[in-house]
Design a protein around this nucleic acid. Structure first.
Lengths: 152, 152
DNA sequence: TATAGAATTGACGTAAACGTAAAAGGCGCA
DNA sequence: TGCGCCTTTTACGTTTACGTCAATTCTATA
């Protein structure tokens, strides 16, 4: 009574409701996108994913894959999962999604500002650290060669 | 029986042990360095500071101020408090502190590498985000002006 | 059928650096 | 003497995104 072949040799074994669905279990899904099982369950728990079930077994559809891609992109650019969810929740397959796009743009602008500020902070830190490092190197050099040269 | 005048008018009211000690209570210390009381107590709890006590009242010395400056510099460049403590614990006022300096340099090199990696990630994110933003703007533009122009 | 490999839920742990609340003691001042 | 402000200790809470068991069940395959 399995829905998909383990080695996924044949194209489609199930044609329950929709067209060629290409359902995937959690293990394969995780491997495919380089995340852990825990992560996928966590995202579901947070309402970001909604896989079908075969009994208790999760089956991820094409839609889940698209959503996961979005999640991962969002995380990459520094959005929180809450932000991602908020944006995804606005998705409406029947409309123009103008609201969703506007929200995404708004959040993106803010995030871009945050990223730029972060970069500035990091540059500061790098400079500060580099400065300290030369100072330390100096001190070490003085300690290792205390032969000649006056203190002044 | 107070050790310092509240408004710190006179130079030194106490000459208990050391020279002009310039002791400061937690409130003043916090204000002076822009941290909260909680932070100072937390640092003490973690073994990073060691103020004297007048009864139960903390009195911060010149030494504590120097240490706090170091802590804040360390945090600024991204060291953890553990790192900072590890480095400070090696301080020996009687020696050359070569070990301390070497450890600091070692940790600094690693931290510098981390910072540079972070900057690279942020730059990536900025680029990715900027790209998405233009795409979204495009979509919004198409939605707002659907008058003429073919779909292709 | 035995066994290994997936998968499930539940629940506590982690990391960092504090925030915040509570209850109480001490001090200067009017 | 009462008030307000400063300070103290204790201890739980916060945030985010999972990690890490643990106990159990299902499934496929040899």
């Amino acid at each position: 009574m399995k829905l998909i072949s383990a080695g996924e040799t044949a194209a489609n074994t199930n044609m329950s409701v929709e067209a060629g669905e290409d359902l995937v279990r959690i293990g394969e899904m995780a491997k495919k996108y380089g995340v852990t099982l825990r992560t996928l369950r966590f995202y579901e728990d947070k309402g970001l994913l909604n896989p079908q079930r075969d009994g208790s077994t999760r089956l991820y559809t094409r839609r889940d894959k698209a959503r996961l891609k979005l999640i991962l992109l969002g995380r990459k650019v520094g959005f929180s999962l809450r932000d991602v969810k908020q944006m995804m929740d606005l998705y409406d397959p029947t409309g123009s999604n103008t609201k969703q796009l506007r929200l995404a743009l708004d959040k993106s602008e803010k995030q871009l500002a945050r990223l730029q500020k972060q970069r500035a902070l990091i540059d500061d830190a790098i400079n500060e650290l580099s400065g300290s490092m030369s100072a330390v190197r100096q001190m070490l050099a003085e300690r290792s060669v205390p032969q000649a040269s006056a203190a002044s």
